[in-house]
Computed example of a mutant assay.
Amino acid sequence: MKNIGELISLVKTQYPEKEIIALHEPVFRGNEKKYLLDTIDSTFVSSVGKYVDRFEEMVQAQTNTKKAVAVVNGTASLQVALRLVGVKPGDEVITQALTFVATVNAIAYNDASPIFIDVDLDTMGLSPFAVEIFLNEYGEMREDGCYNKQTGKKISACLPMHTFGFPVHMDKLIEICEKWNIPIVEDAAESLGSEYKGQKTGSLGQIGAFSFNGNKIVTSGGGGAIVTNDLEIGKKAKHLTTTAKVPHSFEFMHDELGYNFRMPNLNAALACAQLEQLPSIMKNKRELALLYTEFFRTQGVKFRQELPNTKANYWLMCVELENMKDKEIFLKETNSKKILTRPIWQLMYRLPMYSHCQRDEQINAEFLEERIVNLPSGVR
């Protein structure tokens, strides 16, 4: 870009009290302390308490889903969601290589393998068209579902990720996956508050998974949530994430292998206070996105904006630079001035544990890997 110094000045004016300007640090301006003290006073600080129930109700309302289940983090929500849609050891899951490692780790935790399919340039998320090309070449329908002709393994799920809060082209992806009888689990970890054609992300697939980590748009410190419109799946999610304990007033009976993935009431209290502020947080971030849009237009740099018929939460804002060299210069100069920009993730098949996995050409993913840089995106 023409003048990185002008960007540094702009960012510093938006966060005037910060010596080091982080990518996305949490802001606590509501009832956080009040609810935390209330939780401590109640002595219900662990995995049972009124704030866990309230958090689940608030997530249901926010996502327009019928059931939300609080869990300990976003990775846990993905791991359980995949099991709930039928992913079994030895199966395969279609997903994207341009993602945070948790997306793919959740597949591995189910003893399944990822198939890496390319992303779309406009969304930076899983490309329905690339999925269709792959399935037309390698998919084989059998009585119990779709199989990969190359490996002979069942493709048990499709796991798109809404990158930085920008929604994937979900209608086309749903159409393709329904044709091939592949359930969709949405990795909505980064997209709380985002919408696709008027529907909340996380509510379009069979199951959605969210993260409330410390760097997310709202946080519980550490936490996640599973959401669904299928009440039976929701009931099963709650059962599995609470050690598969059969309800009883005093006996301990567990009827299958479950997980101790319960969100503590302390974390839920923090999350409830944060969720109350989500509308104002999104308004603040969208105003920042507008400032960036105008600035980068004068610099001749592509600032990533939401697409028509979508609403992005602008969790992490980003620019697309001309090439790898420009990206390296940008990162070095901004970080040297304590403006903590960062590159997009290294593609998952470059990691040693996933280097052997099947993938398509990844033309778009590699293009974006070389050019995308995240900007400070926190609430001002």
Rank of each mutant, 00 (worst) to 15 (best):
M1G: 05
L7D: 07
L7E: 03
I8C: 00
S9P: 02
T13F: 12
Q14Y: 13
P16R: 09
E17R: 10
I21N: 11
I21H: 10
A22C: 14
E25F: 14
V27H: 14
K33D: 15
D38Y: 10
T39M: 08
S42N: 08
S42E: 07
S46F: 01
D53G: 08
D53V: 15
E56M: 14
T63Q: 07
K66A: 13
K67Q: 09
V80S: 05
G86V: 02
G86N: 04
V87F: 03
K88N: 12
G90C: 06
D91K: 03
V93M: 01
I94K: 11
T103A: 06
I107G: 01
I107T: 04
D111E: 05
D111P: 01
S113Y: 13
S113C: 05
I117C: 04
D120C: 04
L121I: 11
G125V: 02
L135Y: 03
G139S: 07
E143D: 07
Y147V: 02
N148M: 00
T151R: 02
G152F: 00
M161T: 15
H162S: 09
H162M: 02
F166S: 11
P167G: 09
H169T: 08
M170D: 02
K179V: 06
P183H: 06
A188F: 06
A189Q: 12
G198I: 12
G198N: 07
T201V: 03
T201Y: 06
G205S: 05
Q206E: 13
I207E: 03
S211F: 11
N213G: 15
N215V: 13
V218F: 13
S220T: 06
G221L: 01
G223L: 01
A225H: 14
I226C: 12
D230L: 09
D230K: 10
E232I: 12
G234H: 03
K235Q: 12
K238N: 01
K245G: 11
S249C: 10
E251L: 15
E251D: 15
E256H: 04
L257V: 15
R262G: 12
M263A: 06
P264C: 14
N265F: 00
A268L: 01
A273K: 04
M282N: 09
K285R: 12
E287C: 05
L290H: 13
T293W: 12
T293E: 10
R297V: 05
T298N: 13
K302W: 05
R304Y: 09
R304P: 00
T310G: 03
L316D: 03
L316P: 02
V319K: 06
L321R: 03
E328L: 15
I329D: 09
F330C: 09
E333D: 14
N335I: 05
I344W: 12
Q346V: 15
M348A: 08
R350Y: 14
S355H: 12
H356E: 05
Q358K: 10
E361T: 15
E366T: 11
E366I: 08
L368G: 06
L368M: 06
E370R: 07
R371K: 03
N374A: 07
